[in-house]
Amino acid sequence: MTSHLNVFQQPLAFFSNRPITGFHRDGYCRTGVADFGNHAVAGVVTEEFLDYSASQGNDLRTAGLTGGCKWCLCTARWLEALQAYRDGKITKNGVPKVVLEATEDSALRQVDLDTFRQFAAESQTNGASVNGVNGH
């Protein structure tokens, strides 16, 4: 893997292999020239987010996701959920928590770091847990 950086300009942390995620399906939320969706946001999805995403035409349950799963999200999809929350269409719980250490810095082209910090998940311990929820 070439050197990809997270939002803190540190080496990008591994995110999840249960399920295997990332545009490159290597567990990292890293992007490249072929990734037009910019799958850079390391998100912990909720059932509310999955419902919302499906209502917008992107049913992530077809990939086997359930609430609590870790998934490399398209930056624009995460931002869409944030706007839906701001517009009162979903609750704050509908915006996936973000694991900042595993979110690629390319996401900062669309979302500022302070906004991501408002939705930050607790730091992981050896990639095993986010807010006490094991990746699945």
Rank of each mutant, 00 (worst) to 15 (best):
114 D>R: 10
40 A>G: 06
112 D>M: 10
58 N>K: 10
44 V>W: 04
129 S>W: 03
66 T>M: 10
131 N>M: 03
40 A>K: 01
57 G>A: 06
102 A>E: 07
28 Y>W: 15
105 D>Y: 07
11 P>I: 02
90 I>T: 05
122 E>P: 08
128 A>I: 13
13 A>S: 14
106 S>E: 12
18 R>T: 15
79 L>E: 06
9 Q>N: 15
74 C>A: 14
118 Q>G: 09
100 L>C: 11
100 L>Y: 10
47 E>H: 05
27 G>M: 00
30 R>M: 11
21 T>A: 08
35 D>E: 10
111 V>Q: 04
109 R>W: 03
36 F>H: 14
108 L>F: 01
136 H>I: 13
61 R>H: 12
87 D>A: 13
86 R>K: 13
125 T>H: 10
107 A>R: 07
40 A>V: 08
64 G>S: 12
102 A>H: 08
41 V>A: 02
63 A>R: 15
31 T>G: 07
53 S>H: 10
86 R>S: 08
119 F>K: 05
7 V>K: 00
108 L>H: 05
55 S>C: 06
119 F>D: 02
126 N>M: 14
130 V>N: 07
56 Q>L: 14
105 D>K: 13
27 G>C: 08
104 E>K: 00
18 R>V: 15
84 A>N: 02
72 C>R: 01
29 C>P: 03
102 A>I: 05
84 A>R: 00
74 C>H: 01
93 N>D: 14
58 N>Q: 14
8 F>L: 02
56 Q>R: 14
6 N>V: 01
30 R>P: 00
97 K>T: 01
7 V>E: 04
48 E>C: 09
135 G>Y: 03
86 R>Q: 13
19 P>S: 08
90 I>Q: 00
28 Y>G: 03
18 R>S: 15
81 A>H: 07
114 D>F: 03
33 V>G: 12
4 H>K: 10
4 H>Y: 12
52 Y>L: 06
122 E>A: 15
116 F>A: 01
77 R>M: 08
23 F>M: 08
50 L>A: 07
94 G>C: 12
105 D>L: 05
26 D>N: 13
43 G>T: 08
79 L>D: 09
133 V>P: 02
110 Q>V: 09
122 E>F: 08
80 E>A: 08
35 D>A: 10
50 L>P: 00
117 R>Q: 15
